[in-house]
């Protein structure tokens, strides 16, 4: 499979963290592996992510499951560096992502696209401009400030929209679209970033089953055809089983399960979703169309 082209900036990055033997590291964007080492994030006394160790090779589609408050969102936000880790390391190749600053940090964010539960589009901008914001990291300052994009960039954005079946809305305001449409636009924005990794934080939690399926199919398509690593937080177990190569279960900030979907037994799932789910069954965690009673589909921790 052909890999997308990536820039190798090779810019030395200061590493001021104590305990590191050498003060400069070379970022290796050609790395093949995202590696978390004892990654920890505390909010006051609460440990949202507790010493997470993970290795995610390029091109995997990973689903993270767990109850609300299990630390799934925090983990994803740590990867994108929307929040800073309290402890531990995020390694991409040899590069210590947790230590990135300024321009290098922004470059990492642009390589590590993120989509959100609430889409986080700019409602009052039109759809194509929203998608074009995915190009901001590559733009000279004056063009970014004046919102001037080249025809090539615009065509690229429209291609990305077209791939999600949203090209016809290009000139509408983002806030006029339905939730499912907005999430597709958000995925197009992520694609416009030409990312290496795509993080999805509860991408379907605010959507109806029909749109959830469209969005999840799109994520799988991006993973399969573009070779982009997809790491996806999911409330629902059956969606994770259906779409992901690998499932990670989180409970109270810890990673309690890591394996292929067929290794995830009902007992294991019950543990991840909490002991109170005595009458636990997978359909109860479903939002997918294939569930037996879609009308009564409930999210287990909603």
């Amino acid at each position: 499979m052909q890999r997308p082209r990536f820039v190798v900036p090779g810019r030395p990055v200061a590493d001021h963290r104590p305990g590191t033997a050498h003060s400069y590291k070379r970022i290796m964007w050609g790395a093949e592996m995202l590696k978390l080492e004892k990654l920890t994030r505390r909010f006051g006394d609460n440990i949202a992510v507790n010493a997470a160790n993970l290795e995610i090779p390029d091109g995997q589609m990973v689903g993270i499951i767990g109850k609300s408050g299990a630390g799934k969102s925090t983990l994803l936000r740590l990867l994108n560096r929307l929040i800073d880790p309290s402890d531990g390391q995020i390694l991409f190749g040899d590069a210590d992502i947790a230590a990135l600053k300024g321009n290098d940090l922004r470059k990492w964010r642009s390589d590590c696209a993120m989509i959100f539960q609430q889409f986080n589009l700019v409602g009052r901008l039109d759809v194509v401009t929203n998608v074009l914001t995915g190009r901001l990291h590559d733009l000279p300052t004056w063009r970014a400030m004046a919102q001037i994009f080249t025809p090539r960039e615009r065509a690229f954005a429209i291609q990305a929209l077209d791939r999600l079946g949203m090209a016809h809305t290009a000139t509408q305001r983002a806030e006029t679209l339905s939730g499912g449409q907005q999430q597709r636009v958000a995925i197009a924005r992520a694609l416009a970033q030409e990312p290496r990794i795509l993080l999805a934080d509860e991408p379907i939690a605010s959507l109806d089953p029909m749109n959830a399926k469209i969005v999840m199919d799109a994520l799988r398509d991006i993973n399969r055809n573009d070779g982009i690593t997809v790491i996806c937080n999911l409330h629902t177990l059956d969606t994770a089983r259906q779409y992901c190569d690998r499932i990670i279960g989180m409970l109270d900030g810890r990673i309690v399960f890591d394996g292929t979907p067929d290794l995830l037994t009902t007992d294991m799932a019950r543990e991840i979703y909490g002991a109170d789910a005595g009458d636990f069954n997978e359909a109860a965690t479903s939002t997918a169309l294939s569930a037996t009673k879609p009308a009564r589909a409930v999210r287990v921790s909603a």
Partner: peptide, 14 residues
Amino acid sequence: RPIDGITAVGGTWM
């Protein structure tokens, strides 16, 4: 939310 969105694509403060 939109601010988070632009942060996540690697946008500068400006």
